[in-house]
Design a binder for these strands. Structure first.
Lengths: 253, 253
DNA sequence: AGTCATTTGTTCGTATGTATG
DNA sequence: CCATACATACGAACAAATGAC
């Protein structure tokens, strides 16, 4: 059983590229640091060597591997940033130590009436005017996540200006009279990257995004912020620690 | 901008099928309960109507939509199960209420020496013999997740038999002298479904899996179990609640 | 230096799948 | 249903680069 299927609407070379990308991400080739030869891969996937070459060319365009004539195909070392999720989840602070510079950009501000779902999460009446902020999270210049945040527009009218001034949600909220906040809940799912994911997060077709829907509350437990975030799954993993004093080291290499 | 790209190795009809499937999953057509006409879709995606028809035929084969001549294309209702992650995460109990029957099957037992990663997670010496259990989680006959679990083979030699007898990890561990356990950490990522995901979880090509890597510990805090789980992302979302007495309702429809 | 096996790079031709009109 | 254009996949052969001897 090779795992590659024909006539599915997905070209063999792309299926093979996805399979090899997953194997690399899984650390299957870490011992050698390079892939098997084209001939071996062709035999393993039961396809022509041309087809393997097309897959490897795609992975090379993505920057995942590098192939040199006569030498073979080497895996370009890469690491995945781990983003901790817990009661005190914050974007920039969570990445501390893993990256040298984490920033968020405000890429959109608008206002809209609360849908039934959002109203329930924020303990507001449906139709209440909400402030909607769209942000892009970057680490060392590489986009990691984009997010939409909703706030009660009456209470947080000054938030966009504060955000632009401070460049951080935590500090912007502090300027709006919320010195501290806690993460109430996070719901996590995943989906293929959409066209706008691909442009905002600089993703390849076929890439995957991790989706989170979360609610933050102030120190009184009053929900103040609902967020939908979209993470580039090949660059970020999420970590949930239930042990508050003893963080367990990640299982990734 | 349509979001559909040519020459990516993925046929247009499959990209369109994936987009429509994602839109349905996102609830974009819930108000009408049916899709726009083929002509409208062809215009929206900027392709020939033949191509849209091919996409709709694929979705019909998947059982997601039903097309009737003269009437249009209706959406077959479906829902996503939410799987809670927290200190007391358990497969069957977590789905209680959402499904009528949740079971796990043991699909593989083997033994292997601990890799450096696994040894660190379980506080063991690298090379220590580990018991490796592979399981498939189902709800109402639909596969939701497959997982690999590692245990110290010396301490849990009787686990496979106990699992086969009890049909549950919680009860099997109880039979092996672990009356209670807690989830220490969970790391979450996502990736395109591999070929074996597709066969085990009955997924379509282009589907996405949610990946978790977790560690469970006994009541003394000693790590006893490391697990890698793979969830069908179109059927499962993960939920992290940081508020221990007040579970927040999911944001999904 | 040269030789050799190994591995990737290139060029033919041919058949089938995909997309349009 | 047809015809057309392009992408995908295969097979065989040969060229060019690498590393070890």
């Amino acid at each position: 059983m090779t795992g590659i299927e024909r006539q599915t609407g997905v070209a063999l070379w792309r299926q093979i590229a996805d399979e090899i990308r997953a194997a690399i991400g899984n650390g299957d080739h870490d011992d050698a640091g390079r892939l098997p030869t084209e001939a071996v891969l062709a035999a393993r996937f039961d396809v022509n060597r041309h087809t393997v070459r097309q897959a490897l060319a795609a992975l090379a365009r993505e920057g995942i591997v590098e192939t040199v004539q006569g030498r073979g195909t080497a895996i370009v070392p890469r690491r995945r940033v781990t983003y901790p999720i817990g009661p005190r989840t914050r974007f920039s602070a969570g990445l501390g130590g893993q990256v040298t510079q984490a920033v968020t950009h405000l890429i959109g501000v608008s206002q809209e009436p609360a849908s039934a779902d959002l109203a329930a999460l924020l303990h507001l009446q449906a139709g209440t005017p909400l402030l909607k902020l769209e942000t892009l999270g970057e680490a060392d210049g590489v986009p990691l996540s984009r997010a939409v945040h909703w706030f009660d527009a009456r209470r947080f009218a000054g938030l966009p200006d504060a955000y632009r001034l401070e460049g951080s949600m935590t500090r912007a909220l502090a300027a709006c009279g919320v010195p501290d906040y806690v993460r109430l809940s996070t719901e996590i799912s995943a989906a293929p990257a959409t066209a706008s994911d691909r442009t905002d997060l600089a993703l390849q077709p076929g890439a995957v995004v991790l989706l989170t829907r979360s609610v933050n509350a102030d120190s009184e437990g009053q929900p103040i912020q609902a967020s939908h975030s979209r993470f580039a799954a090949d660059r970020v993993s999420l970590s949930v620690a239930n042990d508050r004093d003893k963080p367990v080291p990640g299982c990734d290499k």
